[in-house]
């Protein structure tokens, strides 16, 4: 077990280093930050001076090494655009994204599992078929289109919910939360649905097909032959077995909820890290981009590790000490 974790950590570090290297090799193609930083009145001497100052004249490998050196000490550099430390900016923006991701992730998992189980048990029923058909929309429509549709219906036509922003927020220490005000909660609804819909339908379809598989298994037949009630069979025996493979996909999906919040945040002008990243790309704000990408990859790698450890917790067959006797 311990050896396993050590090996996984080692692999994780390698993955992170490679992601960073690829990211830095790409930055040159995004554009030249100098163009945006200096005004109309610049001279070639200004450009050269700033370039040397920022270290942009060096090969990307050296830039990357410099970034790593700083990052190891907790210093992610200074944003070209805002002139403030990147870590401060990220910390300011993170609560908005995390709250949004938490709500939509929660929605996606609870609704996804509930609907998945329902459609698997009532496989022949009318309601299950309707849900399955509707879920196709969730899988096939792109996120931004769903966002725009929701804005059109609930903000423009019905005028029930705000179409952009976070509403009022309350500061708790350094954390700005939208959970405590009515306008904050109202503002959360549409983006959360937009962001979680795809994940929800995906989890639902996954749970359904796994559950159908499990319901055909011999131990479910044997449980039926022992006269256990349908409720016990479906929700105790079958559901737990269903969740084993579902966990992997769901874990990765949670990662992508945070990572792909970019689109939703853009559509709803949600002041989170995703929007920050989009703005950073437009301005070629290399320190912000680098920090954001590293953050996302750290998150994915961690989620992956947690998912693998969860496997051990759920499935006794994987525990090392357990050997057939």
């Amino acid at each position: 077990m311990f050896a396993y974790i050590v090996r996984r950590m080692f692999q994780s570090v390698i993955v992170l280093l490679v992601v960073g290297l690829v990211a830095f090799s790409m930055f040159r193609f995004v554009g030249d930050p100098i163009d945006n930083m200096l005004g109309q009145e610049r001279t070639q001497a200004d450009i050269d001076r700033l370039r040397t100052e920022l270290g942009l004249d060096q090969p990307f490998v050296l830039q990357y090494a410099k970034f790593l050196k700083g990052a190891a000490q907790g210093n992610f550099g200074v944003s070209y655009r805002q002139g403030r430390p990147v870590s401060t900016i990220l910390l300011e923006r993170a609560p908005a994204t995390l709250e949004l991701a938490f709500v939509s992730g929660f929605l996606a998992i609870t609704m996804g599992i509930a609907l998945g189980v329902f459609t698997a048990i009532r496989r022949q029923g009318m309601a299950a078929n309707v849900i399955m058909t509707v879920s196709l929309i969730g899988v096939s429509l792109p996120t931004f289109l769903i966002g725009i549709l929701l804005i059109y219906i609930f903000s423009v036509e019905l005028d029930l919910l705000p179409s952009f922003g976070r509403g009022e927020t309350v500061m708790i220490g350094k954390w700005s939360t939208g959970f405590l005000t009515t306008s904050g909660l109202k503002a959360l609804i549409l983006p959360a649905i937009t962001l979680g819909l795809y994940q929800m339908t995906l989890i639902m379809r996954l749970v359904r097909s796994e559950m159908l598989e499990v319901l055909r298994a011999d131990y479910v037949r044997f449980a039926r032959a022992r006269g256990l009630s349908d409720r016990v069979i479906n929700f105790r025996h079958a559901l737990k077995n269903t969740l084993v493979p579902v966990i992997t996909i769901t874990g990765l999906q949670l990662g992508s909820i945070i990572a792909f919040a970019i689109i939703t945040e853009t559509v709803f002008q949600w002041p989170g890290v995703g929007l920050l990243f989009i703005n950073a790309i437009q301005f070629v704000d290399i320190p912000v981009m680098a920090a954001y990408l590293m953050l996302i990859s750290v998150m994915f790698v961690t989620i992956n590790l947690v998912v693998d450890l969860l496997y051990y917790a759920i499935d006794p067959r994987l525990r090392v000490d357990a050997r057939a006797t």
Binding site: D218, Y219, A225, L228, H237, V244, I314, R317
Partner: peptide, 29 residues
């Protein structure tokens, strides 16, 4: 089922739920 008539299946490897202990499965029944 289970009370008056019981059944034993062919494959003992697959007819027990892998995620529950033997005690849990017996006590439940």
């Amino acid at each position: 089922r289970g009370k008056k008539i019981s059944m034993i299946f062919q494959d003992p490897l697959t007819s027990l739920n892998p995620l529950f202990t033997v005690r849990e499965q017996l006590v439940e029944t």
